[in-house]
Amino acid sequence: MTLKQFIKRIFLIEIMQGMALTLKMMFTHAVTRQFPEERRDPIPGFRGRHAFVRDSKTGKEKCIMCMKCSTVCPSQCIYISKQKREEDGKFYLAQFDIEALRCIFCGYCVEVCPVCALVLTEEFEYSAYTKEEIYFTREKLLANWDEFAAKQKVETYFNKFWRPEGLDTSKMTKFKREQGPVLLKPGAATPEAAQVPAEKETA
């Protein structure tokens, strides 16, 4: 053992260095956030609570019952049914349910939707006491959108999974290609974004 090693051993040099670091850290800013009081804005594109985009023209959802979302859903938690209307023989959306407790928030449904009707909003606090509260029916999905829209400070909203950057758009539907930011508050500017789908796809 050399003298240097001996000194290191006696005076606990390496432990003192560690202690000095922890002491130094006492005088730096705290990195923790006191969560319920201190909040961070969620980053745009966060995959949170589901919602149906409320079309500012019709005031209803944009779903065209193409069943794509329920087909690609890896956990198969989307239930859709359509019914024939007696008067004109057209199909209408009878049921659109998302069982959010089974959802894994992959966002595949948002990505495949040809009319950008679905969205995973940046909302992440929605715990509830009963199962029924997190079983999103069509009305609840629209209400989720209203709740989300009311909280936003900006006028328009565009989810990045509606038309992901860097992808070839030529195979996407016309509506998806032309989808712009949607209006959050109805009736402000001209609804350039809220276009009616060009061709109604059924099944």
Partner: peptide, 8 residues
């Protein structure tokens, strides 16, 4: 950074 990249 991952949240910024892909939302999760």
């Amino acid at each position: 950074l991952f949240e910024m990249l892909c939302g999760a």
